[in-house]
C-alpha cells in the first residue's frame, strides 16, 4: 500500500475538516436561525457541490487558484508560491467540495433546537454568542459530529477535484483515491485492493458513528 498517499489523504482530510468546522459551524448557525428572505441563495451555493461535476468545480478552482487567478495571484504575491498543484490549494478545493457534507448536517443539528430555548437564554440575559456556546452547541452537537465525520470521510474519498487542482505529486497532492486509480491502471490489483479496503473500512466507521450519535440525541 502507498503509505505516503495514505498520509497525504489523512492530512488533507484533517485540515479540511478542522477548517470546515471553524467556518461552517457559524455559517450553519446563521442559516438555521436567520429569517432573512435571501437566505435560500446561500443555501443553494452551499449545496452546489452536491450536483456539480467535480471536473466543473475543479476547472473553476483552477482558474481561481492559478497564478493568474485572483486568489492564486494574491497567494503567490504574498508567499511566492503557487496555490494550484500544492497542498494548501488542495485544502481550499476540498473545503469547497465538502462544504455541503459538513454544513448541511450542522444546519439540521441547529434547526432541530427549539427556538424557544434560545429565546429563553436571551431573556435570561445571555448574549447571542453565550447562547451559541451554552445552548446551541450542546444541543446541536449530534449534527456537528455528523457534519465533521461526513466532511472527513468525503474528503478522504474525493477524486476528481483533487486530480484537477492538485495534480498527482507524490507526497504532496497524491491521495489514496488517486493512488488506487494509478494502481488499477498499472494492473496492480492487490495494492489497489488494500487501499480500497482501507477506504471502505474508514467510510463505514464514519457513517456508523454518525448514526450511533444520532440515536442518542436529547429528547424530552
Amino acid at each position: 500500500m502507498d503509505w505516503q498517499a495514505v498520509m497525504v489523504s489523512l492530512q488533507l482530510a484533517s485540515c479540511t475538516t478542522l477548517l470546515l468546522c471553524l467556518l461552517g459551524i457559524p455559517l450553519a448557525y446563521w442559516l438555521a436561525m436567520s429569517r432573512w428572505p435571501g437566505r435560500f441563495v446561500i443555501q443553494a451555493v452551499v449545496a452546489l457541490p452536491l450536483v456539480l461535476p467535480p471536473t466543473v468545480l475543479g476547472f473553476y478552482l483552477l482558474l481561481l487558484l492559478g497564478p493568474r487567478g485572483p486568489v492564486g495571484g494574491l497567494f503567490e504575491a504574498w508567499t511566492g508560491r503557487s496555490l494550484a498543484f500544492s497542498f494548501p490549494g488542495l485544502v481550499v478545493a476540498s473545503m469547497l467540495f465538502s462544504l455541503p457534507f459538513a454544513v448541511r448536517p450542522f444546519v439540521v443539528g441547529f434547526a432541530s433546537i427549539d427556538r424557544r430555548l434560545l429565546e429563553a437564554s436571551w431573556v435570561l440575559g445571555e448574549s447571542h454568542w453565550g447562547t451559541f456556546w451554552r445552548v446551541a452547541v450542546p444541543l446541536g452537537w449530534p449534527g456537528i459530529v455528523a457534519g465533521a465525520v461526513l466532511a472527513f470521510a468525503h474528503t478522504l474519498g474525493e477524486f476528481g477535484v483533487v486530480l484537477m487542482v492538485g495534480g498527482n505529486i507524490p507526497g504532496v497532492t497524491r491521495t489514496v483515491s488517486i493512488a488506487i486509480y494509478d494502481e488499477v491502471q498499472a494492473m496492480q490489483y492487490d495494492r489497489a485492493a488494500w487501499a480500497s479496503g482501507l477506504l471502505l473500512l474508514v467510510s463505514f466507521l464514519a457513517m456508523a458513528s454518525t448514526y450511533l450519535v444520532e440515536r442518542r440525541t436529547w429528547a424530552i
Binding site: D114, R116, L117, E119, A120, S121, W122, V123, G125, E126, S127, V135, L139, W218, A219, I220
Partner: peptide
C-alpha cells in the same frame, strides 16, 4: 438581554 426581565412560557423552555 438588556431589558432585565423574566419570561416564562407554557412549557418546554427548560434546557434539556
Amino acid at each position: 438581554q438588556a431589558r432585565r426581565i423574566g419570561f416564562v412560557t407554557q412549557d418546554d423552555s427548560l434546557f434539556p
